[in-house]
Amino acid sequence: MKILVCISNVPDTTSKITFTNNNSEFNNAGIQFIINPYDEIALSKAVDLVNGGANGTVTVINVGDVTTEPTIRKALAIGADQAVRINTTPYDAWFVANQIAEYAKAHHFDLILTGQESIDYNGAQVPAMLGELLSIPSVSIAKKLTIEGNEATIEREIEGGKEVLTANLPVVVGTAEGVAEPKIPNMRGIMGARSKPFEIIEPIPVEALTSFSYYETPATRGKVKLIAESDINELVNLLHTEAKVI
């Protein structure tokens, strides 16, 4: 089984998010970048599925400039067999999905895994766009994934429940928590990562259709109103008369 795992490079979850250039750009000064946590789940699942190479190979792909390489190396250390970087700024999901689709068309993967969304721009767009561009099924938010022969069984979340569905390979699956336990690279993995194939490809021309022009930080709340433990009725009263939420 040939698996492609799409990796995005995002600010660490503890990052304080600030903007620069008149609030038109994310300020990455001093920010630690990591593999998008959902992509780490996708990668861990892929590594489990190929079972040390006995069942196939895992290729990781990132659309990004040279600064994403430490993140890609970490993916190799976790257990991917080879890496591809498409050398460009990832302008928007349409742009990124087209770049990945171009690569995927040429290499015939049985399974393409992404995260359910990237925690920076939260688009949740790439998995289903990839499915469409490749004319294959896609499931955007999978909580469980099993593969048997040529068939994937996927559990997907729905409002107020879950849905179990099947699809024949090839399929694109956007993974959420529950699909796999994230793996941590060990020393052997880190050493081995250096000698794994790492290809750099130039992008195809695609016009981005959306862009971020301006950022604000959400309005801060006023100071918290503390209510004494002994005065619980006052909380109920405030929720009714002041906040008007009950």
């Binding site: 998995p127 289903a128 766009m129 469409e132 955007s140 997907r156 959306t210």
Partner: peptide
């Protein structure tokens, strides 16, 4: 949940930004 699985496919078919 369904919209997330659907909208990107709709957009890609229409070559529309999402």
């Amino acid at each position: 949940f369904s919209g997330k699985g659907l909208a990107p496919r709709v957009a890609a078919k229409l070559e529309a930004g999402l």
